[in-house]
Computed example of a mutant assay.
Amino acid sequence: MDERFPIGPFVHTGEVTLAQREKWIQDIAELPERAREAVKGLSEEQLSLPYREGGWMLKQVIHHMADSHMNSMIRFKLALTEDTPTIRPYYEERWAELSDSRDLDVEFSLQILDALHRRWVFLLNALTDADYAKQFYHPSSEETTRLDYNLGMYAWHGKHHVAHITSLRDRLGI
């Protein structure tokens, strides 16, 4: 197993069907509880372990999910209210080095994920096919991304990072 990608990379080709969107929305809805379960019972020392050599500490992974998913919801809202907006990239690796990502109790980001995902799922369930076809432009990758595809990316993203935590727990028997 590649410890960087314990569930493999995100791959989706072709059209995104209604059934696929519903599955991804369910994944988004379930992420906060999965993240909470992944770190349940871990000590502060264990939360400070990197999920792989050269990787982030487990606590940084949790804080990163909150940061990243907040950014994603904002990108959804921009795409829903503007014509193919250019989104604002951010340096996730630099954000992960800030004190709130390195030192703050993960409970705060778990609470953010819970509230954010409830609101995000509510929005996602209200979108039409035409809404999901809207897109945004990412200046770093120079790619235009449809919201339905981005939904899949973030459904995968949450599972990907939860697997970082659970695969380390499995390897260490904790």
Rank of each mutant, 00 (worst) to 15 (best):
R4M: 13
P89Q: 01
Q20K: 11
R118H: 12
H12E: 11
L151M: 01
E33G: 10
H157D: 02
E142H: 14
I7F: 02
W56N: 02
E30R: 15
Y132G: 00
Q20G: 01
H12T: 07
R118S: 10
L116I: 02
L147A: 00
K59A: 03
L110V: 08
Q46D: 07
E107K: 14
R36D: 11
L127W: 03
H117Q: 06
Y91P: 10
E82F: 12
Q20A: 10
T145C: 09
R102Q: 13
Q111H: 10
V162M: 08
K77Y: 05
L113N: 06
Q20L: 13
E33Q: 15
E82M: 15
Q60R: 04
R4H: 13
Y149Q: 12
F5E: 14
Y90R: 06
E143A: 08
K40Q: 15
V121A: 05
D170I: 11
F10V: 01
F136N: 10
E44I: 11
L104T: 14
H64Q: 05
H117E: 04
Q46P: 10
S72L: 00
Y132N: 03
E44Y: 06
V39L: 05
S99R: 12
E143R: 15
H138W: 03
I165W: 00
L98A: 10
G173C: 06
D170M: 14
L104P: 02
L113Q: 09
L49I: 09
A38I: 01
L110D: 04
Y149K: 13
E3Q: 14
L116T: 01
I87D: 00
E143T: 15
L42V: 00
M73C: 09
M65C: 09
F10G: 03
R169F: 04
D2C: 10
S72I: 00
H63P: 07
T145N: 09
A38M: 04
Y154V: 02
E45D: 14
E3C: 11
F76N: 04
H157E: 02
I174A: 05
F5S: 11
N125S: 12
H64V: 01
P89T: 06
M153P: 05
R169G: 05
W120M: 11
L113I: 00
T84H: 09
W95I: 14
V61Y: 00
W24N: 02
G8E: 06
E30C: 11
A155T: 06
T17P: 07
A163N: 01
R4W: 08
T166Q: 09
L98H: 10
Y91R: 11
T13K: 15
